[in-house]
Design a protein around this nucleic acid. Sequence first.
DNA 1: CAAGTTTCAACCATTTTCGCTCATTATTAC
DNA 2: GTAATAATGAGCGAAAATGGTTGAAACTTG
Lengths: 264, 264
Amino acid sequence: MHATVREKLILKLIGDKGFVAFEEFEREIRASPATIRRDLEKLAIAGKIKRIRGGAKEIASSSAEMSNGVNFNAHLTGTPFYENIEKNRSQKEAIGKAAASLCSKGEGVMIDGGSTTLQMCPHLAGLELQVLTNSLHIVSALIGQQGTRVLVPSGAVFPEQNIILSVFGDPGMPRFHAPKLFMGAASIGEKGLMQADIVLVAAERRLLAQSEEVIILVDATKFGGPSGNVVCELDEIDTIITDSRITDKTAKMFENAGIKLIIV
Amino acid sequence: MHATVREKLILKLIGDKGFVAFEEFEREIRASPATIRRDLEKLAIAGKIKRIRGGAKEIASSSAEMSNGVNFNAHLTGTPFYENIEKNRSQKEAIGKAAASLCSKGEGVMIDGGSTTLQMCPHLAGLELQVLTNSLHIVSALIGQQGTRVLVPSGAVFPEQNIILSVFGDPGMPRFHAPKLFMGAASIGEKGLMQADIVLVAAERRLLAQSEEVIILVDATKFGGPSGNVVCELDEIDTIITDSRITDKTAKMFENAGIKLIIV
DNA sequence: CAAGTTTCAACCATTTTCGCTCATTATTAC
DNA sequence: GTAATAATGAGCGAAAATGGTTGAAACTTG
């Protein structure tokens, strides 16, 4: 059996079942264990699959166990990302549109990555913004827009999250300072804004340091969610845009913290 | 059996199954293995098929192979860039492979954007390189590779060329310094290396300033091409990788300029 | 936490495949 | 008909892929 055939078969098996045990590969593929292992390693290095002890699984399911954070990685492989996009889609669209309407023509803004902030992008066309973002998803969403200037910081690309993050400790984009920062979140509550992934935390803190007005985009399912890593306290947040499913109690809590609430 | 008949048969077999093992060619074609190999090589050079060890497969899945990252190219479909990828494709693949073999494990390198340098990327998997690039095409080709670290400079995204270029005049990535720079070209001749687009010139001069060894990847159709903007003189170039269609006269000219020539 | 089991990666031997050279055969030109 | 050129076939050394073995690492169980 030839290498290309084995490769296709492996990808097919994993595509079907999500996870495939090594034993199953041995059964399905007419080749020695050593060869199968080599194939798996090659595919893992190429980023097509993820090897785990006892077999191999698709890339996507690795981020599914990253619990409920904004799933950037899924954008790479397809289905789970679209699930995430579809989740609360109409709310996210409305939130994104409202966020876009806060931008003035020609302004410079920063946009953090996430499935909610991503929904801003279609509405930014024609505003002639200068957008600084560290998210490659945002870059790809904005790159075709005429008149929108996209800026990125220097740094290393983190493929799991698809963001650019300077590893030197410096901001990576020293000369840019924006009045507004649009940011998503895994969850938000009394203790502040939280992300599940610490890489995202590091990235977002960089952006926070360079911004004046912080605007958070979250659908109402994110309130009081599971614990995570605190990105910032509530008093660093200026505005929250969310949907109407927010409870009065939660709304009151944010208003007491001095946060402006926009409900769409 | 006549050459033209064999050729048609080969293309038919590959068209049907996608991948055909060499053994199968031997069975279907009444000719010696040596002849079949020669036919395959001819077709591969012509860009009709793709040879791989153990047989040959169809050329398809050009971007599918490397598009497991974010799609920065949606706005570029139908542009000259895609035509360029197909032009002299097999030569570019061979050149890219040779260029990749110059990299040592764990090394830090810079890769300029272009349809030829893009062909390096699949061969870089597993080398655990630190790659600095200003080309989003290169980023998306490398982003899925486990172990390959991708670095980008800060700056504005130029959508026409899909590159990141600092508009402040600074290098955008001050702390990175790489031993090797891999670069393409629109044409190259006695006056030096040339690009048609002045944005590319600006971007490449930044990279040149941070590199020690400059390696140029050009297929042989680029020699003595049309006039353009000079990126650098010949004496700044250390190595040129090209295909065997280079003329003796041109080869002599480069060697006289002290350039090491690698012909694939 | 210790013993036992499973899984894995690294190593080496074997097989397969490839590119090169050279001899042979077919084709063309004169 | 003969010479010259191109195409084909065969053999050989090098490179790549594969298979098997072994010792280490990770996980499990008592």
